[in-house]
């Protein structure tokens, strides 16, 4: 699906991902993880790549395989350093009344494989979830 860079589209993206993952028999726990990871990823693009400019577009593609789901999110906005993430120091952030910076940590926790590719024309985030039942 294609959306404009507006947080008003996030609910539609979540619905799109959930319905398709459910149709492909992913468990509810896995659907919850996938839905949140995709929401966080799109929020990051809207906020950081496009700076809330609704003219920007995001392409969200789902590719179902026998044992996994691969989600690709493509944008033409500003790239960001996706790979230099660390667990947010919550205590420090609260002290400084800071928010944010938690999305990438969540994505890496919720998905099994994550890669990010950025060149001057476009950024591509690829996330994979294996179809295994969590213990």
């Amino acid at each position: 699906m294609k959306i404009h860079a507006s947080t008003g589209s996030l609910a539609d993206v979540r619905e799109f991902v959930s319905v398709n993952a459910r149709n492909h028999s992913f468990s509810e726990k896995q659907i919850n993880d996938i839905r949140l990871a995709v929401d966080e990823a799109c929020t990051n693009v809207i906020k950081h790549a496009y700076n809330y400019d609704e003219k920007g577009q995001l392409l969200i593609q789902l590719s179902f395989h026998p044992n996994s789901l691969t989600i690709t999110i493509t944008d033409q906005g500003r790239g960001f350093n996706f790979n230099s993430y660390k667990k947010p120091d919550l205590k420090e952030r609260i002290k400084n009344k800071k928010r944010g910076g938690m999305g990438i940590y969540l994505i890496r926790n919720l998905m099994d494989e994550v890669s990010y590719y950025s060149d001057p024309g476009q950024n591509i985030l690829t996330m994979k979830k294996w179809r295994k039942e969590s213990a």
Binding site: L36, R93, I94, K97, R99, G100, G103, L106
Partner: peptide, 14 residues
């Protein structure tokens, strides 16, 4: 989503 948690982070100290 984390944006919701962010609100609690921003105001708990206040």
């Amino acid at each position: 989503a984390s944006a919701g948690l962010g609100v609690f982070m921003a105001y708990i100290e206040d």
